[in-house]
Design a binder for these strands. Sequence first.
DNA 1: TTGACATGAAACCAAATGGTTTTATATAAT
DNA 2: ATTATATAAAACCATTTGGTTTCATGTCAA
Lengths: 122, 122
Amino acid sequence: MSTPAQKHDVFQAIADPTRREVLRLLAEKELPISEIAIHFPMTRTAIAKHLQVLSSAELVSGRKQGREKIYRLQPEPLTELKQWLSFYEKFWENKLSILKHIVENPSENSLSVIHTEETDKN
Amino acid sequence: MSTPAQKHDVFQAIADPTRREVLRLLAEKELPISEIAIHFPMTRTAIAKHLQVLSSAELVSGRKQGREKIYRLQPEPLTELKQWLSFYEKFWENKLSILKHIVENPSENSLSVIHTEETDKN
DNA sequence: TTGACATGAAACCAAATGGTTTTATATAAT
DNA sequence: ATTATATAAAACCATTTGGTTTCATGTCAA
């Protein structure tokens, strides 16, 4: 974490399971650091740093209110992830549709396909 | 990297830009390690390790053919990412639709909303 | 004003990460 | 048989990461 101030990437920000859980919490409602920290088996400080990472990726924003700092979810950067993903969707949809075809048509030559692998070994 | 043999998670696997670029390459066609490495400013060994990470996340699979090891894309685990993302879509779509509403209705009280922030400072 | 909270900042630490170089091994080509 | 190619495995290294503890500061409450 290391309070980098440097812009973090969305991909990197969501790589950590703790940070994903923080996002999940903030999806329900905005929360001050201490309240967030209650849900985790680590110190408030550690959570504060995770929030800084999320903040530098612009996935959350924090406003100071009295003595507490309240964080809220800012989901917009996730569109970048969605875009990235959309490129790959055609690949797995393709694979799944082939599978679907085999499952839904138990006739045809499914068995011969399976046997191909077996016979290759000989 | 460190050749962990341990199962890697998709989120972690795609966190690294080099690995994302590798996936992009393999999306076009399967390739042996050396060919992949040509596209990067690092050693073949480094790429081999990235491939191990991708492999342990099951985003690629490698088969040995002669003296080369050919890797191919295996996009299925990305469905987990998509699922994760889908939870957040409602949030940003919500925000965008509010924005859209403001933009498309320049009448109404958009200005008063903007002024709220200004007057808070006093 | 005197504590009690909530945070911020800094120093520190172990482990993980992203890379390198070196050495070994199997396969292909001459 | 020899050499070149493709990978694998291991040792090593610097930096980053995810965490801690300690100390300082601002704010709320009594």
